[in-house]
Amino acid sequence: MEKIGFGGGCHWCTEGVFQALRGVVHVDQGFIQSPAPWDAWAEGVILSFDPGIISLVTLAEVHLRTHSATGSYSPGGRYRSAIYVFEETQRAEAQRTIDRFAEESGEAARTLVLDVLGFRPSDARYQDYYRTDPNRPFCRRYIDPKLDYIRRHFADVALPDAAAREP
């Protein structure tokens, strides 16, 4: 198992996206801190994944395509487009994926590659946000379109039912 973190807007959305992928064993939703100048706590997820089933490159690609990777984020705010690494070997792979995405899209990606300094989980009532009630208006409006995108463009790693747990 490997661990990697992702931040990109609301962590409810980010959690739902990664829970919909084969090879992602567990997703912790909460707030991630990195070394200065990125030390403000920002919404994000830490996930454990099986690299034999899904690669870091695929995870990063899904992330870049399911949030506003080219949009503006406030560096001191609670939203940050980032890939949070636990191992130095992950840094180069994540940066190459971001660079390739920017080249293909023709837009500069604002996604940062940052070290994980700390993690605080969200309140228990927000954990598994999509899975506990996928019919919430927020889920329908913001998460469902991302899951539809995954099913269309990442079908080889998408779980058949995004709300179901992988056996």
Rank of each mutant, 00 (worst) to 15 (best):
V57M: 01
L64M: 12
S81E: 04
Q127M: 09
P160S: 15
L21S: 08
F31Y: 15
F49C: 04
G7I: 04
A163R: 13
I46T: 11
V25C: 05
R22E: 14
C139K: 06
G52N: 14
V85G: 02
Y130P: 08
P51H: 08
R91N: 05
A94V: 10
D133F: 00
P134T: 09
G71Y: 06
Q19G: 01
V113R: 04
R80V: 09
A60D: 05
M1N: 05
G30P: 02
R131I: 03
L59D: 05
R78M: 10
R151M: 03
Y142C: 04
P35A: 12
I54Y: 09
V25R: 11
V25Y: 02
Q90D: 06
G44K: 04
S122H: 02
E61N: 09
A108V: 13
G16D: 06
L147Y: 00
I46D: 03
Q29K: 12
Y130R: 11
Q29V: 14
R91W: 06
R96M: 09
R110M: 05
A40N: 13
T111M: 09
Y149G: 05
G118P: 00
S105W: 06
I53C: 09
I143G: 06
D133H: 04
E15Q: 14
I98N: 04
D115L: 11
A162T: 02
G106P: 11
V57P: 00
T70E: 12
E93S: 12
P35T: 07
T89Q: 14
V62S: 10
P160M: 03
D115H: 12
G106A: 07
D39S: 15
V45L: 01
D144L: 07
A108D: 07
H153I: 01
R152P: 00
E103L: 14
P35L: 14
L159H: 03
V57S: 08
G77V: 08
A69C: 08
Y79P: 00
V24Q: 06
D133A: 15
A60E: 01
E87P: 00
R152Q: 14
Q95A: 10
I32S: 03
E2K: 15
